[in-house]
Computed example of a mutant assay.
Amino acid sequence: MPELLGAALEGEKAFNANCSSCHGTNASGKDGFAPPLVHKIYEPSHHSDMSFVLAVKQGVRQHHWPYGNMPPIAGVSDQEIADIIIYVRTLQRANGIQ
């Protein structure tokens, strides 16, 4: 686990409050329920930061994983989304996903 500072630390808090129930601790996923975000599929060149923003705001139709559609997540502020993205990208880099 990388050391989290600033926005990444705030992102961890927002992730734990809004995302971890589906995407697991440290964005590691929940088998049979939701995919890991610390995965090559979600590297920045394949899923831009905007794809995360849209996923939270509008939801996502199932396309990479057999877990069903992701609903929009209500009540997450733009700042929280930005911090969550920084947190996830920090975890990805710590795991060699560039």
Rank of each mutant, 00 (worst) to 15 (best):
K13M: 08
E43D: 05
M50A: 15
P66V: 08
V53T: 13
A17C: 05
G24R: 06
A8C: 07
Y67Q: 07
G11N: 09
F52Q: 01
Q62H: 02
V53G: 08
F33C: 03
N18Y: 11
Y87L: 03
N18R: 09
N69S: 09
G29M: 07
D83R: 06
G11H: 08
C19Y: 03
I73D: 08
V56G: 01
G11T: 06
D83Q: 14
Q62E: 14
D49V: 01
A34S: 13
L9S: 13
K40G: 01
D78V: 07
V76P: 08
Y87N: 03
R61D: 08
M70I: 10
N69R: 02
L5M: 10
E80P: 09
V88W: 00
R93Q: 15
F52V: 12
P2V: 11
T25C: 04
A82Y: 09
L37M: 05
E3V: 15
E43F: 04
D31F: 07
T25K: 15
L9M: 12
T90C: 04
P66H: 12
Y87R: 04
C22Q: 12
H23G: 02
F33P: 00
S77H: 05
I86Y: 00
F15H: 10
W65Q: 03
R61W: 05
N18E: 07
N26L: 15
G32A: 08
F15D: 09
L9N: 10
G24V: 06
A34D: 01
V76H: 09
P72E: 02
G11S: 12
S20P: 00
N18G: 10
L91Y: 02
N18H: 14
K30G: 01
K57F: 07
A7D: 15
G75H: 06
N95V: 08
S48H: 02
G68R: 02
V88P: 00
V76T: 14
I84V: 13
S20M: 14
A27I: 06
F15E: 10
Y67G: 01
P36V: 01
Y42I: 02
R61I: 10
Y67E: 04
S48D: 12
V38W: 00
R93E: 11
G68C: 01
E10M: 11
G6T: 13
H46N: 13
K57E: 15
A82D: 14
E12P: 02
S21Q: 08
L54F: 07
L9T: 09
I86F: 00
S48A: 13
S48Y: 03
D31T: 13
F52Y: 11
S45K: 15
S20V: 12
Y42N: 06
E80R: 09
H23C: 04
N18T: 11
A17L: 11
N26S: 14
